[in-house]
Amino acid sequence: MSSNAIALEGVSAAYGQSRVVHSISLAVAPGDAATILGRNGVGKTTLLRTIVGLHPAASGRIVLDGDDVTEARAFTRARRGVGYVPQGRGVFQHLTVEENLELGLAALRGRPGGGGTVPGHVFEIFPVLDRLRGRKAGLLSGGEAQQLSIGRALVTRPRLLILDEPTEGIQPSVVQQIADALAVIRRELKVAVLLVEQYLAFAWSVGERFYVMRGGRIVMQGETAAQAPESVAHLLNI
């Protein structure tokens, strides 16, 4: 199992007494990508936040590169290679693009070659960030902010990149750029990608594995190469 970048073993999560994520098991290997699909309110975001460490796991194990991090706080998981691109992008509005990127350097503390500056490959993957370095992040368009959020996660040198609906509210041309960027990130940086997505075409173009969630459980899973997107549509449409 330790060959996986991330492995969940029966992970559950709850808000108070009400359990919203039930015994989820999944794994993603380095350089692979998996998509979690599902309607609104089925526990997708809670599951991602549990992996990142922003929500406690009620039971089960979260294994990162062979190490159990179930009890670890979010900032230590970030320092051990979990990059997070939240829903709504989570950029710091009052800070500039460059300052946002530099905050990602905090995750490199205690790692070999840590500290220093924002690596150049971030600007190669997202050239727009180089042009907008000095701009306040609150003034960016949705697509620019999304690229900043992914770029910033790359600064933390992740081994697992977690994205929550990266295409939400973004124009098609930028969606294509993000898909291309994710392909580079997987191929050249050997980063495992786990994303939550409602947009089926994007999910199929990015990931080779998919999981469909319903009522906090995985109700269907498979390979995107083996099944057509239409085969899961009935689980997603209302």
Binding site: V52, G53, L54, R73, A74, F75, A78, R79, V82, Y84, P86, G90, F92, Q93, H94, L95, L103, G104, A106, A107, L108, R109, R152, T156
Partner: peptide, 15 residues
């Protein structure tokens, strides 16, 4: 300032 604006995101960046 980062923690003040969005504590969760700051944590997720290793702060």
């Amino acid at each position: 300032r980062a923690v003040q604006e969005d504590r969760d995101m700051a944590e997720a960046l290793g702060i």
